[in-house]
Amino acid sequence: MTFELFSDIFTFRDNALRRLDPRVKVVVGLVAIFAVVSSQGVLFPALVFSLALMGMLLVGLPVAFMLGRFLAPLGTVLILFLLHAVLYGWTPLFSLPLFGQRVVIMQEGVLRGMHLACRVLGGFGIMVLLSSVTPSHQIFHALAYFKAPKGWLEVAMMMYRYIFVILESAADAMAAQRVRLGYCGLKRSLNSLGVLSGVVIVKSLEQAQRTHEAMLARGYKGHTPFGPMPALSPKDGWTLGLSLGVLIGLYLATEGWVFG
């Protein structure tokens, strides 16, 4: 079963970014991402990507993991870059022979494609870094602090926790199906996947009943209380101010420079 690695396995390593207050990381991450997608030039997203890449290397994320994470968006970026290069623009840059025809590459399209590529890399870099230095429970805690709806958070925490429990049952059932040659040919594969999906849902419903009884026994009243978050330490406050200052400064300098 090709279930992939959750990035938050790296959050259990101790490093400076890991020790930062999750509220600081969530705010800085979101500001950086929305600044990247609002940028009009390539320089700001490229700088953000470079900073994120440095952060990822500093906290010791394996290069293979980073490449794996960036493979899917890079594939999409490559295709959209090609599309823009030939579809968009009015100034021919050069032409390439393809199956007896000539494909004209447009200057404006290439610039637009590069901008898109930088935006994707910048945004993705921040997202991967954020999830690699912030455990999920801290992200949920920060979201609770920022007044995310209680019901949504409750379901989110429940879902996150039980994904791994149900995954084990699903993996066991799939292994049993494989042993019985359940994945030989499309028809049998589909039949096995259908049964497996049903098994997963039934197991999840039965688990929900057991979980609910266990929660009731521990005094569950429809929501799990979050403990209060401590006030930001001076170090976290400085980090927040400095990070936002750097981001805003870079944004103004690069976007102004591009259009100035």
């Binding site: 409750e154 989110a156 009943q209 929660m215």
Partner: peptide
Amino acid sequence: IPMVGLVG
């Protein structure tokens, strides 16, 4: 909540 979470 547990039902929706687990089905999720």
